[in-house]
Design a protein around this nucleic acid. Structure first.
Lengths: 146, 146
DNA sequence: TACACTATTTATAAAGATTATAAAATAATA
DNA sequence: TATTATTTTATAATCTTTATAAATAGTGTA
């Protein structure tokens, strides 16, 4: 789907859930969809301060929580200080560079088998799983050898 | 291996690396090995304040970092506020209850295949991966139905 | 065992991310 | 357009983690 299509669909989702569409929410969604990075709340705040000089950081956090609760956004927590936020499109995993922190999307068929086994062994009703892969991206590999 | 054996081996590892054995380090290691929970730094701090009334939180954090650097301990970051720390025994994954937060260990052969594909597709030199499984434990399931 | 050297602990403050609060502004709806 | 509940803003508070410097204590050696 096009990015405009994604935005429209996201806005529909919000309307259906009774969440008001404010300019700030519109802009945050747009930024999340357009940016292929996986920004932190502060990244978003900084990126939009030109457009919304008076916007509060709390607004960014509040809305990211709203989006997360509605299922539009996933919150990613890695070892570092702050969470990253990812607009939910289709199921994919992340490959993360230990050197520069770059995050690359990586599609892989769902690991249903793992979930089933886990459920069987632990007695849990399994809902979902998360997986990340860590390594060194080619840029960083090149730098290392020089 | 017995818990005492694990502790002895951990202390050997520290000695080999030139890390001094202090009573605080001994106690933190012991607590990590004995407790099957996956405690936060604050959990450890609180658990040991009876034995070490003057111990500083910084000591707990410092030592957890030392242990991590030496490879004795893994730091786990989930969505919530603080990291959890896990004494490294053998490779395993975690199954986490969405209801009560309980963490259960789950053994599963390494997902080498995923790493290989990720490496191929993204051009990364893949080092490792992490995976967690989320669901509802049987205790919480029982409560829900009542 | 006592000494000397350096790592470690403590106490404290600082930094950084996130959340809480209350007043002002505004989107949705009739 | 008027109303009302939601949202934004501004600010402060909270919580986790790290930095700093002085005091303390492990460890190897004589």
């Amino acid at each position: 789907m096009s990015e405009e299509g994604q935005l429209k669909e996201a806005i529909s989702t919000l309307k259906e859930t009774g969440v008001r569409i404010t300019p700030q929410r519109h802009a945050i969604l747009e930024y999340l969809i357009d940016s292929m990075a996986h920004p932190t709340a502060d990244d978003i705040y900084k990126a939009l301060e030109g457009k919304f000089p008076n916007m509060s950081v709390a607004t960014v956090y509040n809305n990211l929580r709203v989006f997360r609760e509605v299922g539009l956004v996933k919150e990613l927590t890695y070892g570092d200080a702050s969470s990253r936020f990812d607009f939910v499109t289709t199921d994919h995993y992340h490959v993360i560079c230990d050197g520069c922190g770059k995050i690359v999307d990586f599609h892989y068929p769902g690991l249903d088998e793992v979930e089933q086994l886990a459920s069987h062994v632990t007695g849990f009703k399994v809902n979902n799983h998360r997986m990340e892969i860590y390594g060194t991206c080619s840029d960083c590999s090149t730098k290392e050898t020089h």
